[in-house]
Design a protein around this nucleic acid. Structure first.
Length: 625
DNA sequence: CTAGGGTTAG
């Protein structure tokens, strides 16, 4: 052990270690190994006369790769610049590092490097290989981030041209990368053209097409490709996952079940990707029993899988289940991430367990998820739904970056709490902040108008939607307007708004009007609305109930009985209204005239006692305060 | 080179 080098790992060990730091994202260890290289320049000099030049080059390439994988474009570039000898792997690793630039900048960086590589290859004989092109294309594909998607299309076309020029036009892997990149850049047509031009296609090719079409919401195409593919090559779990993505997107329950059958037959039912996608299909289609069967059959759920079922619960009216499962997961120490937290926050609404909400917020702070916009938006909503407007505002003010949903959420929060004027101030701030109003923004604004009773302002808003903001109002917006007119007591105006409008299916609107009529006790318009609604939707329980209420208030008991009979004939039952209160982390719910609560006798005693006290002279007498 | 998840209105 005379010199330092004999204590060192050998070249092969070192490059392997550096590369694995890259794969694992261990920048600390990777940089420490880099320091070792720097400290022993004699051993790592990249010169033609070095006895182990090949091995030394591999070490340097590994360093570039390591920095690239750790998201350090600049450090990768510095290492690369110091290298006197380079090969295709050096270039490819540096190109891969461009993706950390993010957005369109990543693509232009990768293109610039590719250009440099092509120019220098004439002199130094470093030729591009197939990895060069798949790397550039995957950078272009990943650089996509919503808005900049179309601007990357030219970059893809340039690379496509170079692929052909450089003689890689027949490579399957490169064709696959082109297909993927074109889909990501928002051009399914170009992807399809590449696909049809490919002489050789493998599972990856087909899967890229199936998932690309599904993501582009071209579900028919996706299904057709899946069917066609099964005659050509064997599907793998990625293929099934992609086919299920199309089922989930198009709410195709039957197709989902069929693919489920194929999944079982092919033996992929224990694949987490497939299982998560299956649950997603079932819960989006409202088949929670089937989703739960998949859920229970899963042996090793991960955080994605759990996020899917949480969303399924909250979108199918099983919010309590979502809270329960989330608490169980956290209690069991299962890994959760920011997506899981956003999902559970989305369950707040129908019920709003404030104590749990605060605990989740604490967890978010502990886990450092506060940088995530989805998470913060979820908190804003959670607090406002729990009745804590101030907390909601505080989260909103302190969140690191806001998007349209953030603004929609805070506007809705103020609308929900009846602060109509604040709603419009926030709308102005939203625009000043550069956030684009969306259709939901206008729902929240109209909701705000209802609360201040400003029907005029509301109608202005409705008109400005399409004329100023280019957003077409949906039925929900019109329903909001009817609700607004109705709340303001302008029931006849609301009625003519519906009847004069060009609405194809106005059920939602009559329902809104009906609600307003029962609030104002206007039986005239109310009856009209209910009858209109029953014509459009004979299964609408609420319409029968309203009619029957109107008849009883008028003492027309025969008519009331007729309505109730009509309702029963349709096989309908009135929903029971419940009230609930949360005590000591437990939700107690009560139904009128029901003794279903285990302690209803004790509750009755206390109520009886309180009403006795209330009728006494001094209302405070006898209370233990 | 291909596959899974999150927030907003009612």
């Amino acid at each position: 052990m005379r010199d330092a080098s004999s204590r060192l790992l050998n070249y092969a060990h070192l490059s392997g270690l550096v590369a694995s730091c890259g794969r694992g994202g261990d920048l600390r260890l990777g940089a420490a190994l880099h320091a070792t290289v720097v400290k022993h320049p004699a051993h790592f000099r990249l010169c033609g006369d070095h006895p182990h030049l090949r091995h030394v080059l591999v070490v340097w390439n590994a360093l570039v790769y390591m920095y690239a994988r750790c998201g350090r474009r600049d450090d990768a570039g510095k290492v690369f610049d110091e290298m006197r000898v380079r090969d295709a792997v050096s270039w490819n690793s540096l190109i891969a590092a461009s993706s950390s630039r993010g957005g369109p900048a990543a693509a232009s960086d990768a293109l610039a490097l590719l250009g440099r590589m092509l120019r220098e290859s004439d002199r130094r004989a470093v030729a591009c290989d197939r990895a060069t092109f798949t790397t550039v294309l995957s950078v272009c594909a990943r650089a996509w981030s919503g808005a900049g998607a179309t601007s990357l299309l030219p970059a893809c076309r340039v690379v496509h041209g170079l692929v052909v020029t450089c003689g890689f036009g027949a490579e399957v892997a490169i064709g696959n990368a082109l297909v993927t990149a074109y889909f990501e850049c928002g051009s399914p047509a170009s992807a399809e053209r590449v696909f049809h031009g490919m002489g050789e296609k493998n599972v990856v090719t087909w899967t890229a097409m199936i998932s690309g079409m599904a993501r582009a919401e071209l579900y028919k195409e996706s299904f057709m490709l899946f069917r066609e593919m099964r005659r050509m090559v064997d599907a793998n779990s990625a293929t099934y996952s992609s086919a299920l993505l199309a089922c989930a997107g198009s709410l195709a329950a039957r197709e989902g079940q069929q693919v489920h059958g194929l999944v079982v037959k092919a033996g992929f039912e224990a694949d987490l990707h497939v299982e998560s996608e299956l649950m997603d299909v079932y819960s989006k289609c409202g088949l929670m029993d089937d989703a739960l069967t998949v859920f229970r059959s899963c042996r090793e759920p991960d955080e994605v899988f759990l996020t899917v079922i949480l969303v399924g619960f909250s979108q199918n009216g099983m919010e309590e289940k979502a809270f329960e499962l989330f608490a169980e997961m956290v209690g069991a120490g299962i890994d959760i991430d920011d997506n899981t937290v956003s999902a559970v926050l989305g369950a707040f609404g129908a019920s709003a367990p404030f104590a749990l909400g605060k605990q989740i917020h604490a967890l978010i702070i502990k886990k450092c998820f506060g940088w995530n916009t989805y998470v913060c938006n979820g908190l804003v909503n959670m607090y406002s739904k729990c009745g804590e407007l101030r907390e909601s505002v505080q989260v909103f003010d302190e969140m690191p970056s806001k998007n349209s949903v953030s603004w929609n959420s805070i506007i809705a929060a103020f609308a929900r709490h009846g602060h109509g004027l604040e709603v419009f101030r926030l709308f102005e701030s939203m625009k000043a902040d550069g956030a684009k109003p969306t259709d939901v923004t206008f729902l929240a604004l109209l909701h705000g108008c209802s609360h201040v009773g400003s029907a005029k302002k509301g109608l202005e808003i409705l008109n400005s939607m399409s004329s100023q903001y280019g957003i077409l109002p949906r039925m929900e917006h019109y329903a909001c307007v009817v609700d607004m007119l109705g709340r303001a007591g302008l029931l006849d105006d609301a009625k003519s708004f519906i009847e004069d409008g060009p609405f194809v299916d106005s059920a939602l609107l009559w329902q809104a009007l009906m609600g307003a009529c029962s609030f104002h006790g206007n039986s005239e318009v109310g009856k009209h609305a209910a009858e209109k609604l029953l014509l459009l939707d004979p299964n609408c329980t609420a319409a029968y109930v309203l009619l029957s209420n109107i008849y009883s208030s008028e003492g027309r008991w025969d008519d009331k009985a007729k309505v109730m009979k009509r309702m029963r004939k349709m096989g309908l039952k009135k929903d029971t209204g419940k009230s609930w209160i949360e005590l000591e982390k437990e939700v107690h719910s009560f139904v009128i005239r029901s003794t279903s609560h285990p302690e209803s006798a004790a509750v009755d005693d206390v109520l009886h006692h309180l009403s006795t006290v209330a009728s006494d002279q001094d209302p405070m007498e006898g209370t233990a305060l």
